[in-house]
Structures are given as C-alpha cells and as structure tokens.
C-alpha cells in the first residue's frame, strides 16, 4: 500500500468522498483520525471524573467498598469482559477487511461486532435486574438492603456502580448506532481501500469503550474477593 500512496493523490483527486477544503484523501483521513482521538481524549477525562469520585470514596470507605463489591456476581461480568474483547477483535478484523477492500468481510465482521455488543447489553440488563431483586439499587425510592455496618457507604458504591456501568452501556448503545451506520455506508459501496476512515474511526470508538470496561471489571467486581467470599 505504502508505495501506492503517492500515486493515489492524483488518481483520486476527484474522489467523491474528498471534501473541497482538503488536498488529498490522505490529509482528510489524518484529520479525521486526529479528530476522533481528540474526542477520545474528552472521553478519557469524562470517565476519569467519575473514576476520581470512585477513588476518593474507595479510600474513604475501603471496607464498605470491598464488601459491596463482593455482592456482585463475578461470572456475568467476566463473560461480558470476554464478549467485549472478542468484539474488539472482530472490530479490528472489520477495519482490516476495509483496508484490503473485502466488502463482504467488512459486513460480516461489523455484524458480529454488533451481535456481541447486543449480547453485552443483554447480560448487563440481566445484572441490573439481579441488583433490583437483591435490593441493591440505591435510589429511585426502592428499598436498599445491606448489612447495617456498611449501609450508607454501600449506597455510594452502588451509586457509582450504576453511574459508571450505565454510562458505559450508553456508550455501547451509541456504538451500535454507529455500527449500523457503517453497515449502510459499506453496503452503499462508499468504503474502499482508499477511503475507509469512517470504519477506522468508528473502530477507535469501539475499542475505547472496550478499554473502559477493562478497567471497570476489576474496579467494580473484584476489589474485595480475597477477603469476602460472598458472591
């Protein structure tokens, strides 16, 4: 590919996807990739703010956090971690297929990515329902059930749990929307080995959401297991 890059400048000067204010598709793609990375910078700080709150309260209430965390079943969380990592692989394979111009494969890999994303959300919904049954929802006027000693700070833990996993799930839903759009673009034949920036930057977003979960899993599910074998 690299030796063809220079040639591509002239051959595709009138590429339909080339916006009027860019010199070349290469320059346009570099701009989109940088733009997406800067967006991910904002995402890092966004989740980072909530993680700061988590960190402060965890240093304040280490025992309550450990006990409350042990109340969450590990298995669904672990399965979801695996599901997301697998979806990141299929996303990477979709970008690869876009680079090599295999349109059928792009469609298949994006579809698998979406199925995995939906599976993640399904398991998440099941977990939320479990929390509801167990009385671990710290609000909405629902009864909160927890051992007396940690009754108050456990509510902080579960509040942060729902905010972080809820925001993560929202990002997954947005991701599914983006992937649907990518399916449409690919089917319309817009995506070519010269112009696959949309797939590439959508992939960046998807991988980022995966990374958030990579941190949430140990921080929310696993912090008290070695002392409290409850779940």
């Amino acid at each position: 590919m690299s030796n063809g890059a220079a040639v591509a400048h002239d051959a595709h000067a009138h590429h339909p996807a080339l916006a009027h204010h860019f010199e070349s598709l290469d320059a346009q793609k570099e701009a989109s990739v940088l733009g997406m990375w800067l967006f991910l910078v904002t995402e890092i700080l966004f989740f980072g703010g909530a993680l700061t709150a988590y960190m402060i309260y965890r240093t304040w209430y280490p025992d309550a956090f450990a006990v409350a965390s042990s109340e969450i079943a590990i298995l669904p969380g672990a399965i979801n971690t695996a599901v997301l990592i697998l979806s990141s692989l299929t996303m990477a394979l979709a970008v690869h297929a876009a680079q090599t111009g295999e349109r059928g494969k792009i469609l298949v890999f994006i579809a698998i990515t979406m199925v995995l994303g939906a599976a993640f959300l399904g398991i998440k919904a099941y977990e939320y329902h479990e929390k509801y049954v167990e009385g671990h929802i710290p609000g909405l006027g629902l009864p909160f059930r927890f051992e007396e000693e940690y009754y108050r700070p456990a509510q902080i833990f579960f509040s942060i749990y729902f905010v972080l996993t809820g925001l993560h799930a929202l990002h997954m839903i947005i991701g599914l929307g983006i992937m649907t759009w990518m399916l449409v673009l690919t089917r319309k034949g817009v995506i070519t080995p010269e112009y696959y920036a949309p797939i590439e930057i959508s992939g960046l977003y998807w991988h980022f959401v995966d990374i958030v979960w990579i941190f949430l899993f140990p921080l929310l599910y696993l912090i008290g297991r070695h002392v409290h074998h409850v779940g």
């Binding site: 990592i85 990141s88 990477a92 690869h96 990579i214 140990p218």
Partner: peptide, 27 residues
C-alpha cells in the same frame, strides 16, 4: 506519510486477543 496505510497482519490481532483473554482470566 505512510502510517495511515499500515496494515497490521492478522496474526498480530489474534495474538493480542489471546493475551487479553489470558489477562482477564489472570485478573
């Protein structure tokens, strides 16, 4: 100039995938 056109070999993706799964189990 050429970084945007770098195509990562598929074997790399599979290796990383395995490493991530092992990491999850290890955690």
């Amino acid at each position: 100039n050429h970084n945007q056109h770098h195509i990562v070999p598929l074997s790399t993706y599979y290796t990383i995938f395995l490493a991530l799964m092992v990491g999850t189990a290890l955690t």
